[in-house]
Write a protein that binds this DNA or RNA. Structure first.
Lengths: 208, 208
DNA sequence: GTTTAATTCAAACGTTTGTTTAGTTTTGTG
DNA sequence: CACAAAACTAAACAAACGTTTGAATTAAAC
């Protein structure tokens, strides 16, 4: 089994699933775009749905910032900044895959829905620990952690999911991937740092 | 043309499109759920795509808070609070439709993508004006308005889009719509008020 | 070089898709 | 009641779907 060709199909499928949705993409679309014979997809993956599962497995290491969390030399503020850098970079580098993750709710297959939910839960736990740590050290306010993480992920998702909207808003060519990624990565990082700092910081008037 | 039956089909379609996506929903699904003959959908709407267009038109008045914006007796802070109340209530009351709006990016039809983008632009303009007004009156900080609105909408969208995730997180029965809406509406409003207040308020140390 | 296994392919499979047809029933009007 | 328009239906349509087949080609092993 040629790993090259398999990976190539996976990448084409990722792009199409991310852009047109799983149900909006036919295996013939994938085969044509990847320039492989239609039957190759069943041959390599078994079925369209198992192709999606393979895709999810390939990106399953979507959460690898445990090291960051364990680093005792970093202050909670530094951790927050690094998480923002890390996540924004990672998601903007994988726009299509992130869209697939967001569509997971509609998946007909319960197995896939579970799989995606679990990846999200892992990511959530990482972020939760960082905020919890800051709260224990009385550096962060007593914010609603679930909702705070929701705002963090939601802000990023908005940029990846509503690309047509933001392209129009910032007058970026809808087909210019590089321009969108560069523009939005910068804006996202700066904004999220400001937003989360303001949200988490213990203000003077609260100290009394 | 029976408006009752037409509306009934629209509501069933809204639910299915919102839950399973446009491409994941067949006209036979809709006909069966709505308990109408398959041909009635073409008869009333012309096609599946025009059914979606009718759905969008029906909810086109999705933005009706101009009155709020023009109300000179309200302070920017009051406006922000009211917008939060308004939007959260409205979106949580129309979970499925909001999901359809979020999926719009994947729509094959450019007409539909444009339509949805324009609705979003209208909503954005309303929110932008409120923040701009507060900034002019030097009550709000000089935040990035586009990104701030992005966080606002993104936070809400996260709740509607990643329902499986949040149901699991808060141990809410995945089929209990009422419980989800009630729980999340409260959490959302409280969190968004806190978040936006912290983000927009001019802090003491910045006044010097 | 021969044999065996892995890969590729065009073609066809049976379903499901969105839509249309042609005929029936119901409704509203004079 | 008569009759035209509207509403509704079961059946069929062609196209697209995911998947499988069986033969052809290539690669690997001995």
């Amino acid at each position: 089994m040629s790993a090259d060709k398999r990976d190539h199909i996976l990448m084409v499928a990722e792009k199409l699933f991310g852009e047109k949705g799983f149900d909006g993409t036919s295996v013939r679309d994938i085969a044509q775009q990847a320039q492989v014979n239609l039957a190759m997809i069943s041959y390599y993956f078994g079925s369209k749905e198992k192709l999606l599962e393979s895709l999810l497995e390939m990106r399953a290491n979507y959460t690898i910032l445990e090291a960051l969390n364990k680093d005792e030399t970093l202050s909670p503020w530094q951790k927050v900044d690094r998480v923002i850098e890390f996540y924004v970079d990672k998601i903007m580098r994988n726009l299509c895959f992130h869209n697939i993750m967001q569509q997971g709710n509609q998946a007909q297959s319960e197995e896939i829905r579970e799989y995606i939910t679990n990846i999200k839960l892992k990511n959530f736990e990482q972020l939760k620990e960082i905020i919890l740590d800051g709260q224990k050290k009385q550096i962060f306010r007593n914010v609603d952690i679930e909702m705070t993480v929701g705002s963090f992920m939601g802000t990023i998702s908005q940029i990846t999911l509503a690309r047509h909207f933001y392209s129009k808003l910032f007058a970026i060519d809808i087909n210019d991937d590089a321009a969108y990624i560069e523009t939005m990565t910068g804006k996202l990082k700066k904004h999220l740092k400001q937003l989360l700092h303001a949200h988490l910081v213990i203000r003077n008037e609260e100290l009394n």
